[in-house]
């Protein structure tokens, strides 16, 4: 499909040229996809790490704080490039999709087939709803400020509610060892992890518990604030690295 050309002087490529340009598009796309599958996934594993790996790390305080904050980084940088240079509003969705492809491959092959963990114990969280909103927000506003504030906040605020349908059932209480546990805690106890003793879990700790039961919304709002700053920071990182200033000399 070609774009309708209205007023300006540039005409769309036709014939052989159009085919070449299209082939180039696909080349870049496939390259970018693999690049993001590898790099964003690695970045995520090194920063969010255990909070995303294990069902018994997905708490109300740290998980909804850390995950969107680290998850908004690459989307912001890639959006900066794709929107600024090409008016393509798909940076965030592309990044998060690539992340999830990489994550699912690791969970199934490394965690399940290689290390024998049941897949439901290592289900990844999703950030796709937030990414879609982020892309749509950038496209409609065409503004870094609005996307950072409204989009960044939405990215953080949507995280917990979009994942609760996946993880709520793991929070059903079980009576075990004369105590009340969640199914998630029970996974951590039953399915032996030699390098991951229980005390390493960074969960349900901190000063956000002032409002008792409302720990998750508070963590989400806190994350929203930080995501706004993180978005702007990574937007500039993306922009800075996409500059052609250094290339003109070549």
């Amino acid at each position: 499909m070609s774009l309708p050309v209205t007023t300006q002087s540039i005409k769309p490529y036709t014939g052989e040229k159009a085919r070449l340009v299209r082939a180039y598009d696909y080349l870049i796309l496939v390259l970018a996809l693999f690049l993001f599958i590898g790099s964003f996934h690695l970045h995520f594993a090194l920063t969010v790490g255990d909070w995303d790996f294990w069902v018994d790390w997905k708490d109300r305080q740290w998980w909804p704080l850390v995950t969107p904050l680290m998850g908004i980084t690459f989307p912001a940088a890639v959006q900066a490039v794709l929107w600024d240079k090409f008016r393509l509003p798909l940076g965030a969705t592309l990044c998060v999709t690539a992340l999830l492809i990489g994550t699912w491959i690791t969970r199934i092959f490394a965690y399940h087939y290689w290390n024998f963990f049941p897949v439901n114990m290592v289900l990844p969280a999703t950030m796709l709803p937030g990414a879609l909103v982020l892309d749509a927000m950038l496209m409609l506003s065409n503004s870094l400020t609005i996307t950072a504030i409204a989009g960044g906040s939405a990215f953080a605020l949507l995280f917990y509610p979009s994942n609760w349908p996946i993880f709520a059932l793991f929070h059903q209480p079980v009576e075990y060892a004369n105590a009340q546990l969640t199914l998630a805690d029970l996974f951590g106890f039953q399915y032996i992890r030699t390098g991951m003793p229980e005390y390493l879990r960074i969960i349900e700790r901190g000063t956000l518990r002032t409002y008792g039961q409302y720990a998750a919304p508070l963590a989400a709002f806190c994350s929203a604030l930080l995501c706004t700053l993180m978005y702007a920071l990574w937007w500039y990182i993306g922009k800075w690295f996409a500059t052609t200033r250094y290339l003109s000399k070549i």
């Binding site: 997905k58 708490d59 059932l169 929070h171 059903q172 969640t182 879990r201 969960i203 349900e204 700790r205």
Partner: peptide
């Protein structure tokens, strides 16, 4: 659907 859901126990 899961009104009895509780936080992770730590």
């Amino acid at each position: 659907r899961y009104p009895n859901a509780i936080p992770l126990q730590a």
